[in-house]
Simulated scan of single mutants.
Amino acid sequence: MTVRRTVVVRPWPAFSMRLSVRTAVVCAVLVLVATAAAGPISFVALVAPRIAARLTRAPGIALIPAALTGALSLLVGDFLAVRLLSPTRLPVGVVTVSLGGAYFAWLLAKQARA
């Protein structure tokens, strides 16, 4: 015999407001922890869709190729961060920003010539 438990959501405005504030605080804390653990790898979000668009030659930005390109660039960045200077370890953010910056510099130079 199993007992089923159900969650009852009451339509009170004060309850829903407290729930949404709690949810927002929990989400903010989770983002803070993820950023602290992973480091600032912001260039991946900028570079991955552009590289994916160049590789797939799709008319718009395809989500799956951009996600796979971002995952691959992080994997390569992490591998280089661990193996580049073997006794010491570089942060992944340093490698991804370096690779992303080099790609953006190349892209800007190519667009300036065109």
Results as ranks from 00 to 15, higher is better:
residue 13 P to T: 04
residue 87 P to N: 01
residue 15 F to R: 14
residue 112 A to Q: 12
residue 19 L to I: 08
residue 57 R to T: 05
residue 80 L to G: 07
residue 98 S to L: 04
residue 21 V to L: 13
residue 1 M to G: 14
residue 51 I to M: 09
residue 4 R to Q: 14
residue 91 P to H: 00
residue 84 L to C: 06
residue 65 P to C: 09
residue 88 T to Q: 05
residue 27 C to Q: 08
residue 104 F to R: 02
residue 67 A to Y: 11
residue 21 V to Y: 07
residue 71 A to W: 01
residue 111 Q to Y: 10
residue 81 A to M: 08
residue 90 L to I: 07
residue 49 P to G: 03
residue 14 A to F: 09
residue 23 T to L: 14
residue 50 R to N: 12
residue 10 R to M: 06
residue 98 S to D: 01
residue 90 L to G: 04
residue 29 V to G: 13
residue 109 A to M: 10
residue 9 V to M: 15
residue 50 R to Y: 11
residue 3 V to Q: 14
residue 67 A to D: 06
residue 14 A to V: 12
residue 60 G to D: 06
residue 95 V to I: 05
residue 79 F to V: 12
residue 29 V to R: 10
residue 61 I to T: 13
residue 102 A to K: 04
residue 89 R to E: 03
residue 51 I to Y: 05
residue 38 A to C: 11
residue 95 V to H: 01
residue 111 Q to V: 13
residue 81 A to I: 03
residue 30 L to N: 10
residue 66 A to D: 02
residue 1 M to I: 11
residue 13 P to L: 08
residue 75 L to E: 08
residue 43 F to P: 01
residue 75 L to R: 09
residue 8 V to Y: 12
residue 91 P to N: 00
residue 112 A to F: 13
residue 10 R to C: 13
residue 101 G to A: 07
residue 54 R to S: 10
residue 50 R to V: 14
residue 11 P to V: 03
residue 45 A to T: 03
residue 46 L to S: 00
residue 72 L to P: 08
residue 62 A to I: 02
residue 66 A to C: 09
residue 99 L to Y: 02
residue 39 G to I: 00
residue 22 R to Y: 12
residue 12 W to P: 15
residue 80 L to E: 02
residue 109 A to P: 02
residue 53 A to D: 08
residue 69 T to H: 04
residue 1 M to T: 11
residue 65 P to L: 03
residue 59 P to T: 03
residue 50 R to T: 13
residue 73 S to N: 10
residue 10 R to Y: 10
residue 26 V to D: 11
residue 83 R to C: 07
residue 51 I to R: 02
residue 35 T to A: 12
residue 4 R to C: 12
residue 9 V to Q: 15
residue 97 V to S: 03
residue 59 P to K: 05
residue 82 V to M: 08
residue 12 W to R: 15
residue 70 G to D: 01
residue 66 A to G: 07
residue 106 W to P: 05
residue 92 V to W: 00
residue 61 I to C: 11
residue 34 A to I: 04
residue 33 V to H: 10
residue 10 R to S: 14
residue 22 R to I: 09
residue 57 R to M: 08
residue 93 G to V: 00
residue 114 A to L: 10
residue 28 A to C: 15
residue 34 A to L: 06
residue 53 A to L: 12
residue 22 R to T: 14
residue 36 A to G: 06
residue 6 T to W: 14
residue 81 A to Q: 06
residue 59 P to C: 05
residue 95 V to T: 04
residue 22 R to E: 09
residue 110 K to P: 03
residue 59 P to F: 02
residue 8 V to D: 14
residue 35 T to W: 09
residue 76 V to Q: 09
residue 6 T to G: 15
residue 50 R to K: 12
residue 8 V to L: 14
